[in-house]
C-alpha cells in the first residue's frame, strides 16, 4: 500500500472541501433484507424525518433503485444516517414513518443507524433484519 498516495489523495479531498464553505460529498444509499432482496426504505439524515419525507429520500420504492444524496458536514465530521424500512404498495409508500419506532412497528423490519464520515466509501449499504416475531 502506498501510504503517501493515500495520504495525498485524502488530504486533497479534505483541502478541496475545506476551500468551499461547507464540506460536502455525494453518497449512494441502498438497502436489502437478510435474504438479499431490495428493501424499501426512507433515508433520514441527522434525525430530520420531516425533510427526508419532503425530499422523497426513498430507496427501492418503484424498483430496485438506490438514492444518491449530496451530504454536507457543516459542524460535525459525522452525519447520522437512519435507514428506516417502509411498506410499499403500487410503487408508493403506504405510510411514511416519523420515527424509528414507527418504522419498525409498521414495516416488520428493524431500522439501522450509522455514522457516516466525509472520507467514507461512497456507497452506504444497509442489510435490515426482520423484527423478532415477524
Amino acid at each position: 500500500m502506498n501510504s503517501l498516495l493515500r495520504t495525498t489523495s485524502l488530504s486533497a479531498l479534505l483541502c478541496l472541501t475545506a476551500c468551499g464553505s461547507i464540506p460536502s460529498r455525494e453518497f449512494e444509499f441502498d438497502a436489502i433484507d437478510v435474504s438479499e432482496n431490495p428493501r424499501p426504505c426512507l433515508v433520514v439524515l441527522n434525525d430530520d424525518w420531516t425533510s427526508a419525507a419532503e425530499k422523497n429520500q426513498f430507496v427501492n420504492v418503484t424498483d430496485d433503485n438506490s438514492l444518491v444524496l449530496k451530504i454536507e458536514f457543516p459542524k460535525s465530521p459525522e452525519v447520522e444516517v437512519t435507514c428506516a424500512p417502509i411498506q410499499v404498495a403500487d410503487g408508493k409508500p403506504t405510510r411514511v414513518p416519523k420515527s424509528r419506532k414507527e418504522a419498525r412497528d409498521y414495516s416488520g423490519f428493524v431500522d439501522e443507524v450509522r455514522k457516516v464520515q466525509l472520507t467514507d466509501p461512497r456507497k452506504v449499504f444497509f442489510i435490515l433484519p426482520k423484527k423478532a416475531g415477524s
Partner: peptide, 9 residues
C-alpha cells in the same frame, strides 16, 4: 484498498 476512503466496511 484505502486509496479512496479512510475506512472500509
Amino acid at each position: 484498498d484505502f486509496s479512496e476512503c479512510s475506512r472500509i466496511y
